[in-house]
Design a protein around this nucleic acid. Sequence first.
DNA 1: TTGAATTTGATAATGATTATCAATATTTGG
DNA 2: CCAAATATTGATAATCATTATCAAATTCAA
Lengths: 147, 147
Amino acid sequence: MKDYAKENRLLLDYLKKNNLNSTRQRDLILKEFMSIEDHVSAEELFAMARKKDPSIGQATVFRALKVFSEAGIAEPVELSDKTVRYEHKIDHKHHDHLVCVSCGSIVEFFDERIESLQKAVCNKNGYSINRHRLDIFGVCPECRKKE
Amino acid sequence: MKDYAKENRLLLDYLKKNNLNSTRQRDLILKEFMSIEDHVSAEELFAMARKKDPSIGQATVFRALKVFSEAGIAEPVELSDKTVRYEHKIDHKHHDHLVCVSCGSIVEFFDERIESLQKAVCNKNGYSINRHRLDIFGVCPECRKKE
DNA sequence: TTGAATTTGATAATGATTATCAATATTTGG
DNA sequence: CCAAATATTGATAATCATTATCAAATTCAA
């Protein structure tokens, strides 16, 4: 069981700063979100939360994920399909994605040289850098074996 | 006026190979698509095509863009908003995008070193590489000046 | 505790895209 | 060139993820 004291504190701080309330539902959804490491969609998280509290509404999960993102706890990513997925942002350094187009599995990677080359591109063009995303789509070793 | 003989030939070849028909609508939509260099959405292209032929249907534009993509003429890209945009693929080498989050303008760039580092990441992880996308979001020089 | 402000859950609405289907157009073998 | 076979079109309904709406319930701050 992962500890998520830091996320809890961040959430409380964010809520207080923005005159938002701390609620049972938001707490539960955060706990569920922190309980898995995978990239999770709102729908999947809704299914998980519902097991713990069948009365929870789907819209509440969407709203909670938006709050988590604004609080810096979650990071939305859009990969292969058309649904947004969320990953942990705390103690989870920036990374890019290697996505298997066959089985959908995701490997995270980080390459300092790619990062600095990106910054160089921004500088050369006079852009300030805000964020970036690099997704590589291919076939993972396991799926290649099967083919 | 850009010449698009190559695209026309590619389309005809693709249609023939797949037992598809060459139609007035597909020709018109291709012509309109080739007439602009920007990243265009189905809706924008629909508006353009409709000016030339008011009877054209929206679904036909979506279908044509799918055919163009399969024929290797167009390339779908998903940038900031949630609509898919299409860019020219012929005589338009692979590139990545620098997107201004303020005005939405797009600069294309290409860095051979980034490309080869990506290939290295794939090799290291045993992935075959299929395609990739790298989008950098920031603020362009013009918008920075205004701030 | 209480009342003002926020949140919730259910449901309707949205917006881009895809599916359906009858009517029309294109192809192709003769 | 013609006619049957096949593919395409346009209109419209359906999808699907997400957002908006709103009355009822909850939370907070004094």
